[in-house]
Amino acid sequence: NLYFQGLKYMVPGARVTRGLDWKWRDQDGSPQGEGTVTGELHNGWIDVTWDAGGSNSYRMGAEGKFDLKLAP
């Protein structure tokens, strides 16, 4: 699974964008943008601060869902 392989790169400072299971509307800005991981992966959740200004926790394994992917 590509998403599980990418988890080791989901570290503080990593750049991310919305992924396969995104369901959080425009939390990442409008139009959709990139963000920066600000915390360690914990119980399948990870913290992100978006360039647009907001921050929140997103699923990276929790509930079998992956809200994020590494930015290109």
Rank of each mutant, 00 (worst) to 15 (best):
T49I: 12
W45P: 00
N43C: 15
D51C: 03
K23W: 06
D47E: 15
L68Q: 01
K65Q: 07
G19L: 06
D21W: 05
E34Y: 14
G53K: 02
T38C: 12
K65G: 05
R25A: 15
P72E: 14
L2A: 13
K8M: 13
K8W: 10
G44W: 03
A14H: 04
L41I: 13
L20G: 09
F66D: 00
Q32M: 13
K23L: 07
E34G: 11
K23F: 06
A71L: 12
L41T: 07
E40V: 13
S55N: 11
Y58H: 02
G6R: 09
G64E: 06
Q5V: 12
G39P: 00
G61T: 02
F66W: 11
W50Y: 01
T49E: 12
W24F: 06
V11G: 08
A71V: 14
M60G: 01
N1F: 10
W45I: 04
D67I: 01
G64K: 06
G53F: 03
N43Y: 10
T38K: 08
I46W: 03
W22P: 03
E34M: 14
K65V: 04
D28G: 07
G35S: 00
G19T: 05
I46A: 03
G13K: 03
R25T: 12
K69G: 07
W50L: 02
F4I: 12
Q27P: 05
G13P: 03
Q27L: 05
T36Y: 07
T17L: 12
K23Y: 05
K23R: 09
M60E: 01
E40Y: 14
F66A: 03
R25V: 12
F66L: 06
L20I: 13
L2Y: 11
A71Q: 09
L7C: 14
S57L: 08
G13N: 05
V48F: 01
L68G: 02
V37C: 07
L20M: 14
G19Y: 05
G13F: 05
K8D: 12
D67T: 04
A52K: 09
G53N: 03
S55Q: 11
R25G: 15
P72G: 14
P12Q: 09
K69F: 12
G33C: 10
G13I: 04
L70T: 05
A52R: 10
D28A: 06
S30Y: 12
G44I: 03
Q27F: 06
G53C: 07
G64H: 08
I46K: 00
N43F: 10
A62H: 12
W22V: 04
Q5S: 13
G13M: 06
A71Y: 08
E63R: 07
G53R: 00
V16Y: 02
E63N: 10
W45N: 00
V37K: 00
N1T: 13
D67E: 08
G54C: 13
A62I: 06
K65L: 03
D26P: 05
Q32H: 13
W50I: 00
Q32C: 14
Q5Y: 11
W45G: 00
T38A: 08
V48W: 01
E63H: 11
L41V: 10
G44P: 00
E34F: 14
D47G: 11
F4M: 12
E34N: 11
A14N: 05
T38G: 06
K65I: 03
S55L: 09
V48R: 00
K8V: 11
A14M: 09
W24Y: 11
W50V: 00
G39C: 10
